[in-house]
């Protein structure tokens, strides 16, 4: 695939299970593409240089910063955003755990926290709260709701490991 500075290129990918094909400028960030082209505004854009974690999504199952990836680079990829989880009336287990533990206040960081937690729960033992804190340390919450986010993830670790 090639594209000139002024021209758009066709990119196709799977987003939350649906096949999408769109014309994009090479410079469009995946985060902006998801929000502006597909209307998936659950992926939040905070710092736009990889520091805050709010735009974290899953690309082929791995958490990535959607502000540090171009939409063209997602050619052929399987993308999952926060919209792939539950809905307001039917939360998935991780979202329910966040709700139960009051792990969000304003909610801006929440989509990134959720997508980060999914990857960490798959890849990390998260045996201690310190490990959970380290796993979430790339995601900034300015309401300082960290304590309850750690509790919400702890509950999911227990559920994963079958000791609740």
């Amino acid at each position: 695939m090639t594209g000139t500075a002024s021209g758009k290129v066709v990119v196709s990918m799977t987003v939350n299970g649906d096949r999408v094909e769109e014309l994009v400028e090479p410079r469009w960030l995946l985060a902006d593409f998801l929000r502006e082209n597909l209307g998936l505004t659950g992926t939040h854009v905070g710092c736009e240089h990889g520091v805050c974690g709010a735009c974290t999504i899953l690309m082929n199952g791995n958490s990535v910063r959607a502000c540090l990836t171009f939409a063209v680079q997602a050619q052929g990829a399987d993308i999952e955003t926060v919209e792939s989880l539950g809905t307001v009336n039917d939360l998935d287990d991780l979202q329910e755990s966040f709700r139960k533990h009051h792990a969000l206040q304003c909610g801006f960081c929440t989509p990134g926290m959720l997508m980060t937690a999914i990857d960490a729960l798959r890849k990390r033992p998260l045996a201690t709260d310190q490990e959970i804190r380290d796993a979430l340390s790339g995601n900034i919450c300015r309401c300082t709701g960290y304590q309850n986010i750690v509790k919400a993830v702890r509950t999911m670790v227990q559920k994963r490991d079958g000791d609740d």
Binding site: M1, T2, G3, T4, A5, S6, V9, E25, P26, R27, L29, D32, E48, H49, F70, V72, Q75
Partner: peptide, 11 residues
């Protein structure tokens, strides 16, 4: 500026 300038893309 928080968006990249325009560039061409080759893969």
């Amino acid at each position: 500026y928080m968006k990249p300038p325009a560039f061409g893309y080759e893969a």
